[in-house]
Amino acid sequence: MQSLIIKKTEETPAIILNPVKGVFQFVATSWPENAQNFYTPVLDWISGYFGNSPLKETIFQFRFSYFNTASAKQIAKVLSLIKDFSSDNNVKIKWFFEKDDYDMEKEGRRFSAILDLDFELIEK
């Protein structure tokens, strides 16, 4: 399966979904004009990945420093989708936040509390 690599901009995060190297990352900030359009290919890719030949263990790393509410909703969709596949796959979520970044820590706690996933909060 081909990797999905999206380069970081001022308003959108770097997204690296590389099954060969085993890297699944969301990095930096997310506040695009149309979050739905931005995240649709990501959701499609994740469905395709788990539907084809996923790795024995998949670790998704979220390294956000900021996202707007429209992105929050899309991230909730991404995590819900991962949750759907987690019953048949070994999936882990690692949620990174900078020291003293209470917002991103809080967002991580929110997702971790709502979703029944292997969810680790890590202070950088």
Partner: peptide, 12 residues
């Protein structure tokens, strides 16, 4: 609202 995906609105 965050996990309500029924609405087509961008962020409901």
């Amino acid at each position: 609202q965050l996990f309500d995906f029924s609405d087509d609105d961008q962020n409901a």
